[in-house]
């Protein structure tokens, strides 16, 4: 998996884009580089899609570990509208969380974006859920109600390189990579 991303990154023309993608996806990227990026993404969602938090309702104070199993880090999401946070952690330093959703990076990305069905993914075992199942179901339902694409919004925050990375990832996805 990470190998195919490398190959794909190699197909990009510009050296700096290739570097950015490689560093972002397979590391070892220092987490302090990642944190402001993640912060910007979650702040952007909170600003543009406040209804997301209404739908999460009582679970807004919970913490969710989003674990892309083939990445060198995992993300912890706290969808609290007062101070939403999304942070990256090394697996050996994970904080306690209420629920965990794990799967490959691309699978998680597509699910967050409403492009794949959570139930179908679960039936195929590409996604696994542990801990507070109700909170996960609720988060998934809330994300699913968002029009447009969270992932595209996030990519747009980083301009043309961001969009290019996203399109590349989606191409891998379409070619059957999970």
């Amino acid at each position: 998996m990470s190998l195919s991303i490398l190959n794909f990154a190699g197909s990009f023309g510009h050296t700096e884009e290739r570097m950015a993608l490689t560093r972002l996806l397979i590391g070892p990227v220092p987490l302090f580089v990642l944190q402001p990026v993640l912060h910007r993404i979650i702040r952007n969602i909170a600003l543009r899609k406040p209804e997301l938090f209404n739908r999460i309702g009582v679970h807004r104070e919970k913490s969710f570990l989003i674990d892309p199993v083939n990445m060198p880090f995992a993300l912890v999401l706290r969808p609290d509208p007062k101070s939403p946070s999304l942070r990256a952690y090394r697996r050996r330093h994970l904080p306690p969380v209420d629920a965990t959703i794990s799967g490959s990076f691309l699978t998680l990305m597509e699910m967050v974006d409403g492009r794949l069905d959570g139930d179908a993914l679960f039936f195929s075992r590409a996604l696994s859920v542990q801990g507070d199942t109700e909170a996960v179901v609720c988060l998934r339902n809330a994300l699913d109600d968002m029009d447009g694409s969270v992932v595209e919004d996030a990519a747009n925050l980083f301009g043309a390189p961001g969009r290019k990375i996203l399109n590349g990832l989606r191409r891998i996805r379409q070619n059957g990579e999970r």
């Binding site: 409403g114 492009r115 794949l116 069905d117 959570g118 139930d119 179908a120 998934r140 339902n141 699913d144 109600d145």
Partner: peptide, 10 residues
């Protein structure tokens, strides 16, 4: 009704 909008679309 518990399925995602991508499921609904397909």
């Amino acid at each position: 009704r518990q399925r995602s909008k991508s499921y609904v679309r397909d």
